[in-house]
């Protein structure tokens, strides 16, 4: 390989995930990162960029397109899938778990590839965590809305204070071995039916 640092090309349709990885790579000293978001002219862009490592998110159906390009194109230096040899099985499993696929140009030193792949894996995990947290926050908000609406109905129909309404929901949930939000949802459904 050359004296220049590794050039990394990232194919990812998710803007946020791409920037999470890009940032991580830059922090680790890989400043030569190119992000490709859509597949228009992707071969051209790969040829122009001449990357040493290519990452693609595994949710992207276009992974199959990349594989064919690598197989048939005489324009790109042949990148091969990250399966360098069988001893890397753990690393590969970790990458697939995290949702990232990697292709490296043949002949690149294994140690360098390994460290960069490990970084990508940890960044993908970080992104997955952020996404999960976001999902949880969204869900919690939705559930709170349902409980608030159910409380409102109870307060109005049974002339209760907000605390009393919540206590009533919680007691019903405990008795029926259900979650408060499930009971609240039943209250909303019942209210709608009785309207």
């Amino acid at each position: 390989m050359s004296e220049r640092g590794l050039r990394i090309l990232l194919v990812d349709q998710n803007v946020m995930r791409a920037s999470v990885l890009e940032e991580g790579l830059r922090e680790a000293g890989c400043t030569d990162v190119i992000v490709v978001r859509d597949m228009q002219n992707v071969l051209r862009r790969i040829v122009d960029a001449d990357p040493d490592v290519i990452f693609i998110d595994l949710e992207n159906p276009n992974r199959d397109v990349l594989e064919q390009m690598f197989q048939v194109s005489r324009l790109v230096r042949r990148p091969i899938a990250m399966f360098v040899d069988r001893s890397d099985t753990d690393m590969i499993a970790a990458a697939v778990d995290a949702g990232v696929g990697a292709y490296i140009v043949d002949g690149l030193k294994k140690e360098r590839v390994k460290s960069i792949l490990e970084l990508a894996v940890s960044r993908f995990h970080a992104f997955n965590r952020i996404r999960d947290e976001l999902e949880h926050a969204k869900q919690a908000l939705e559930e709170r809305k349902v409980v608030d609406r159910a409380k409102g109905i109870l307060m109005k129909e049974r002339s209760l204070s907000e605390e009393q309404a919540y206590a009533l929901l919680r007691k019903a949930a405990m008795n029926e071995n259900r979650r408060v939000v499930e009971v609240a949802q039943s209250v909303l459904t019942a209210a709608r039916l009785l309207k």
Partner: peptide
């Protein structure tokens, strides 16, 4: 799954 490459990789690594 979303790609044949994923199908192959996840079969090979035992997912």
């Amino acid at each position: 799954e979303t790609s044949w490459a994923n199908i192959r990789d996840r079969t090979i690594i035992g997912h």
